[in-house]
Write a protein that binds this DNA or RNA. Structure first.
Ligand code: MN
Ligand code: MN
Ligand code: ZN
Ligand code: ZN
Lengths: 136, 136
DNA sequence: AGGCTTATTGCAACTAGTTGCAATAAGCCT
DNA sequence: AGGCTTATTGCAACTAGTTGCAATAAGCCT
């Protein structure tokens, strides 16, 4: 199902602003911040307000179309859920970011569900620590 | 080793402000926010600035005396590391917070270290999801 | 195509947290 | 105890993100 269909299905409307925000997210091959999305749109359409960007990201998160992660730089980063399930390992010393396969945390999901009856959302985690290089 | 000793050992100084902030954290049996710490001090000593609270919390984190967690309310929460190692399960629907035993994530720590050479800091995580009640 | 309902937007004012800088005060050394 | 070095503070100005409200516009219904 397309993003537009998902929106419409839940009673939300597709607006030019939302189209531009989605296109910025889908067009970015890395994570993108709210500020970066805003700047990209602002060049062509300066009347678009940054609060619309934040509100739209909030909505896209809720609809499960976009994931939000705190990668430690003081800003949240976003990407399309279509880009696959993975987590991030972030080095506290050098700041480099590595991908962590979803499978590594899968067993824990079951353990938490059985032990606490709690279904954790382990779909896009940021895990801080120290990388190979920085541990030497 | 006491908090004062840890500070001194690293060349930091013990000030009345730091004493008050530490005492607020140690005195609280739950998690406490920066704003709450500030309010508590402000009643008696209105000249103390909130930037000092934020800066001190930053330092105490770095020294490993205090843990910081985003429990989802838009504010960070703090508590003394002395209060034991645990993680939090936070329900996205009802907002209730449950404790998750550290042991549950221990095996993952080893897996990540072996597979990626990355030493993750899994000492105080916030895991979002849905609780028993809200899954019914 | 035009009218109507109501979701969405831009705006302005706000909140949590950060940062540079000059004034202050820990605490070392005599 | 008093002087000196430099870590720390208060202050003011800033950044990322949020929120209430009136104006606007999606898209349904005729
Ligand atoms: Mn990612
Ligand atoms: Mn805790
Ligand atoms: Zn590193
Ligand atoms: Zn719940």
């Amino acid at each position: 199902m397309s993003c537009t269909e998902t929106l419409r299905e839940q009673g939300y409307r597709m607006t030019p602003q939302r189209r531009m925000i989605l296109s910025a997210i889908h067009g970015s091959d890395h994570h993108i911040s709210a500020e970066e999305i805003y700047e990209q749109i602002h060049v062509k359409y300066p009347q678009v307000n940054i609060s619309t960007v934040y509100r739209t990201l909030e909505l896209l998160k809720e609809l499960g179309l976009v994931t939000e992660t705190d990668l430690g730089g003081g800003k949240f980063c976003y990407h399309s859920v279509e880009k696959g399930h993975h987590h991030h390992l972030i080095c506290r010393k050098c700041g480099r970011i590595f991908e962590l396969d979803e499978a590594v945390l899968k067993p824990v999901e079951g353990t938490i569900l059985r032990k606490y009856g709690f279904r954790p959302d382990l779909s896009h985690l940021a895990v801080f620590g120290n990388c190979v290089e920085c541990r030497k």
